[in-house]
């Protein structure tokens, strides 16, 4: 493509980067939604995925060292959050309100203290950009908090489940922003996936 479009080497590198990003994210999102569909929690999975994606754009978070580990975590986490939301949806309103307050306060504190959490492969260098990303993360949190509040008074049958999806997504974002989340990813990175091979006789 680059030779046909006669691109410079620099643009060629950028093109390779963006294609890698698109392939990883689109395939992970598609497989996550597929698992959500198979488990019967597609709308919840989509809500969790979209919420965390918007947060991660601005707040960043812990990262895995390989695309395969990343794919496994991404594909498992979002349907699991949606399943948990579906399981918890019969909970009475005061308990859900308490969970919402805990999630929003935890999210606010962690965003204020740590966002944006960058990686060595994509560092946030400019202090102005760092400040802007933190500000936008807080704006996103307030929008999500407003949606959680609006869903509280909604008559929509799926409102309690979607509300819990948003609450659990905010808690997941808080975890991946925290030191504990980074240690969890380091633990996942340290899992040796090389299965022992049979010794030849």
């Amino acid at each position: 493509m680059s030779s046909k479009a006669s691109l410079s080497q620099e643009k060629e590198i950028i093109l390779a980067y963006v294609i890698e990003v698109l392939v990883i994210n689109v395939s992970n999102a598609a497989l996550t939604l597929l698992l959500g569909f198979l488990l019967g929690v597609l709308p919840g999975t989509a809500v969790c995925l979209a919420t965390v994606a918007v947060f991660r754009l601005f707040a960043g978070g812990a990262h895995a060292s390989s695309p395969w580990r990343c794919a496994v975590v991404t594909i498992l986490v979002f349907p699991a959050l949606a399943l948990l939301a579906a399981t918890l949806s019969p909970l009475k309103q005061p308990y859900v309100d308490f969970l919402a307050v805990v999630a929003i306060l935890t999210g606010l504190v962690l965003i204020a203290l740590r966002a944006p959490v960058d990686t060595p492969s994509a560092p946030v260098i400019s202090p102005v950009r760092r400040k802007r990303l933190k500000y936008l993360s807080i704006v996103v949190l307030f929008i999500v908090a407003a949606i959680i509040f609006c869903l509280r008074n909604s008559a929509w049958a799926y409102a309690p489940q979607m509300r819990l999806c948003l609450i659990l997504s905010v808690l997941w974002v808080s975890l991946i922003l925290s030191g504990a989340g980074q240690r969890l990813m380091a633990l996942i990175d340290s899992i040796n996936l090389n299965l022992p091979t049979r010794r030849e006789v």
């Binding site: 950028i14 093109l15 978070g61 895995a64 060292s65 991404t74 492969s121």
Partner: peptide
Amino acid sequence: LMFLAHVTAASACLISIYQPEVPNSLRR
């Protein structure tokens, strides 16, 4: 694709928890 590269590089990271190496020319 170039536009998307600039958009993705301007944000902290994406949906996935794996972040490919951002080209030096896009680092800010």
